[in-house]
Design a protein around this nucleic acid. Structure first.
Lengths: 338, 338
DNA sequence: AGCCCCATTTACAACGTTGGAACAACGTTG
DNA sequence: CAACGTTGTTCCAACGTTGTAAATGGGGCT
């Protein structure tokens, strides 16, 4: 294995602690010894053993990011930003996938992680607020995403209700009258759906329109396609659909096009997430773009605060920004070079 | 913090080592003490401190997965499988993003990771085989993806040449005659491109067709769209295109459709990777599907072997399987429910 | 010269864990 | 009944690091 402080100390002819002081940039080291030690350090290619350092300091320098699924584009993009933000504190990020299952989410919270991570950024799907509040593990925790607010832990999200209302208003502004919400979930699965549904309802009600909803189990393309197919077969199909995320919207788009109808002429489609796929679909997808870099940054910052300050502080809520991305799936396809 | 072995030992009225023996399932412990200890363990909610265990054992139980970018769907999907495979050995996976830059790739190899990880699964883009061979860090290393074979480390990939030839043969089998390869890269960027180009050439040459190539810098949608646009503007545009990955193909599809042409009637398109997006694009994307679970499993297994056996063994090459996924972008669009 | 102060350096202990040796308490065997 | 092996348990050391306290040594002061 690599050289230890002791090896370096022997080579440099000083004590272990002096080497440690040099490594850690302690000020009171004479230029002469510092030079000697640094020479020895490079000659042996010394690298601190972080297991030992962490044991001593009670920190691991690793945080966990627990997500439903890494291969959902939204979470993949988010992960990129979390890893970047964590790197600024020289933290490594381990990723855990829960698949949204209650069992796996409990495992994550319970600390399958043992003492291997200092903190956890968690984007839960199934687990309830009460259960979160009751957890015994004292690892620092930041919740990420569309959860019940005012929960038992620090929390970062965009204002889902407002975002949903805004995008619905956009569809209304196009002159559409039969506007559906696609992505409604049984309330037992908490979080996203009720908030986005609430925003949709606000807009629909404000303009005296009729509510149309389509339920799904999971936020995946296949479910979006299936739900859209059901909507199209209904007696009076919608002329616009707000899908609760982009994957649902892309699945829905596929279903509309496959049925021989046009987007947006026959059915306008909007999503939420602004995943890259939607910028290159045909037509391109109108959506709400959460500021993912800001979300990730806020989550990491909150975790940093928790880890630094002692844990007494009450939980904090932070809202990241978002923007409407109006693209062809609502305003029309314009052939030509990109 | 949590309870330590010592706390448990005190409560149970035994020595620390006895508790350790119980925790580690050592056989020679009397039922009576085992019971006492287990009771104390659960009462205190004991969790081993892995920093300490790892310090003692010289292992961290964490491996790193270094990728160009996590938000490229192919890598996101691959990561999922790597995490799953690693979980079987109770390993955690930290993910590092290199963005394909030489600087970041060097950092990763040099071991920014210090002793924090036991091994590294690395999907390099820029770094050369010689530089890989010359690395000083002795962390176990497995290369993943389309690299120069017979390199200096264990390596897992699919047979890129054969896969490229197979998919090109498929395009030829459709009766297309002007078949382009989209995704050629300057040879300074090693790996994928030459192998896939070689397979394409084998098929083209075998049927006496003319080679048409389009270069890109990176394997992203935007570059695929731009390269496709160039091809369409050429004096005699292709009637089929093998794109070296699915993102390029989806960008190309967007460009074809945006120019008013049809896929596959005017231009047939095929990719490679089988990312989920391609299963829901319109038309759906014909592609080569590498067995990602097998790739990930092999990489993890090789790492396991390296870590267990002492490191003398010569590097090992493993090939994962793949399948052709023939979809609408080559065989035609069939309206109807999905 | 004797003293104290300061900068520099060191010795020691501790973080929580586990391998190995040592030890105690048995029952078995000659 | 003594010597022995087996089983269960404990003691000690060590992994590599850093905080604390103490030691060392030189310079300036009285």
């Amino acid at each position: 294995m690599g050289a230890s402080l002791r090896d370096v100390a022997e080579l440099a002819g000083v004590s272990v602690k002096t080497v440690s002081n040099v490594v850690n940039g302690y000020t009171h080291v004479s230029p002469a010894t510092r030079l000697k030690v640094e020479d020895a350090l490079t000659r042996l290619g010394y690298r601190p053993n972080l297991s030992a350092r962490n044991l001593r300091q009670g920190r691991t320098g690793v945080i966990a990011l627990a997500l439903p699924e890494l291969d959902a584009p939204y979470f993949a993009e988010l992960s990129r930003f979390v890893i970047q933000a964590a790197a600024e504190h020289r933290w490594l990020v381990v990723i855990e996938q829960t698949d949204g299952s209650l069992r796996r989410e409990r495992q994550v919270l319970d600390g399958v992680r043992d003492h291997r991570v200092d903190g956890l950024i968690f984007s839960p799907i199934s687990i309830g607020a009460d259960e979160l509040a009751a957890r015994t593990d004292d690892t620092a925790l930041v919740l990420l995403g569309e959860r019940i607010y005012d929960g038992p832990a620090d929390h970062v999200a965009i204002d889902n209700v407002r975002a949903a209302r805004d995008i619905t208003e956009h569809l209304i502004g196009l002159g559409r009258t039969r506007i559906a919400a696609l992505g409604v979930q049984d309330q037992s699965v908490s979080g996203t759906s009720p908030l986005r549904l609430a925003g949709y309802r606000e807009a629909i009600a404000a303009h005296g329109l009729v509510e149309i909803t389509a339920e799904v189990e999971r936020y995946q393309r296949a479910e979006g396609a299936a739900a859209m197919t059901r909507l199209l077969r209904s007696p009076s199909p919608p002329d616009a659909v707000f899908c609760f995320n982009d994957l649902l919207a892309l699945g829905a788009m596929r279903a509309v096009l496959a049925s021989g109808l046009r987007v947006p002429e026959d059915v306008a489609l909007a999503g939420l997430d602004d995943i890259e796929d939607g910028r290159y679909s045909t037509p391109t997808l109108t959506t709400v773009a959460p500021d993912k870099a800001q979300l990730a940054g806020m989550a990491v910052d909150l975790l940093k605060l928790r880890l630094d300050g002692r844990s007494g502080r009450p939980p904090k809520e932070m809202r990241a920004g978002y923007r409407l991305m109006i693209r062809e799936s609502t305003t029309g396809f314009r052939p030509g070079p990109i």
